[in-house]
């Protein structure tokens, strides 16, 4: 009965550019970044000054947790690290953190880069959905 957002083909299609290439927007008036992209600038309340912006695939690690009880559909990958990353432009995103072989080496504020991965797939017959995940840079 549960509708899983991530199974919705049209929704996933709508999000492709954001997930694949970190496409958001930048408001030339208030000099603010938006990710995911906004139809209207939240501050200026207009689309007039918005231009498409591709965020850099680098940032710093803020909080992280190791999820032992995985979200449905992620059980095969569990346990996995889940974190908040602040991109260079100051926008924050949540994502999985890969290749944590020694948690002791994770530090608040350390550099991470974003890589391209499969976010989820739906059995043998469903679609795969792709997007970004983070990797620590030691």
């Amino acid at each position: 009965m549960i509708i899983m957002t991530r199974k919705l083909v049209a929704e996933n299609w709508r999000l492709e550019k954001a997930r694949y290439a970190l496409v958001g927007n930048f408001c030339k008036k208030c000099l603010g970044y938006h990710f995911p992209k906004k139809q209207l600038c939240l501050r200026c309340k207009t689309s007039e000054h918005l231009e498409e912006y591709k965020f850099k695939h680098e940032g710093k690690l803020l909080e992280w947790t190791k999820i032992y009880d995985p979200a449905k559909g992620f059980d095969f990958a569990g346990p996995y690290y889940y974190c908040i990353v602040e991109l260079e432009e100051g926008i924050k995103i949540t994502t999985q953190l890969k290749y944590v072989t020694d948690e002791g080496r994770l530090k608040y504020g350390m550099k991470v880069k974003l890589v391209f991965r499969r976010l989820f797939s739906h059995g043998n017959e469903g679609l795969n959905t792709y997007g970004f995940k983070a990797v620590p840079v030691y």
Binding site: Y20, F76, A77, V115, F116, R117, R118, L119, N128, Y130, K133
Partner: peptide, 10 residues
């Protein structure tokens, strides 16, 4: 686990 020829290609 989350890699395939599409992610490698990208």
């Amino acid at each position: 686990l989350d890699e395939d020829t599409i992610t490698i290609s990208v």
